[in-house]
Amino acid sequence: MAGEAALRVRGASVEIGGARILSDVSFDAAPGEVVALIGPNGAGKSTLLSVVTGDQAVTAGTIEIAGRPLADWSLRELGRRRAVLLQQNGVFFPFTVREVVEMGRAPWQGTPRDADDDRVVEESIALTETTRFRDRPLPSLSGGERARASLARILAQETGILLLDEPTAALDLRHQEDVLRIARDRARAGDCVVVVLHDLSLAAAYADRIVLISGGRVVADGAPDAVLTPDRLAAVYELDVDVIRHPVTGTAVVLPRRAPATPPTESPRRAATTATIPSDSGDSMPASTLEETT
Rank of each mutant, 00 (worst) to 15 (best):
M1H: 11
G3C: 01
E4R: 14
A5K: 06
A5H: 06
L7K: 01
G11N: 12
S13L: 00
S13F: 10
E15G: 00
S23I: 01
S23N: 11
S23W: 00
S26K: 02
F27E: 03
D28K: 07
A30L: 04
P31V: 02
A36G: 04
N41I: 03
N41Q: 07
N41D: 10
A43Q: 05
S46P: 09
V51S: 08
V51Y: 13
T53Y: 07
T53I: 06
T59N: 10
A60E: 13
P69Q: 08
L70N: 09
W73P: 11
W73M: 08
L75Q: 13
L78Q: 13
R80A: 04
R81W: 08
R82K: 13
L86K: 14
L86T: 14
F93K: 00
V101D: 09
A106F: 15
A106D: 13
P107R: 10
W108T: 02
W108P: 00
P112K: 10
D116R: 13
D116A: 12
D116W: 15
D117C: 10
R119Q: 11
V120E: 06
V121H: 02
A126C: 09
E129A: 14
R136T: 04
R136F: 01
S140I: 09
S140N: 07
S140K: 11
E145F: 05
A149D: 00
L151K: 02
G160A: 11
H175S: 02
Q176M: 01
L180Y: 07
R188L: 11
G190W: 11
D191W: 10
H198N: 01
L200M: 06
A207D: 01
D208H: 15
R209W: 08
L212G: 02
G216V: 08
R217A: 10
A223Q: 08
T229R: 15
T229M: 06
D231A: 12
R232K: 04
L233N: 04
Y237P: 00
D240H: 14
D242A: 12
T249H: 15
G250I: 02
G250S: 03
R258L: 14
A259K: 15
P260K: 05
P268N: 07
R269V: 11
T273Q: 13
P278W: 09
A287M: 09
A287H: 12
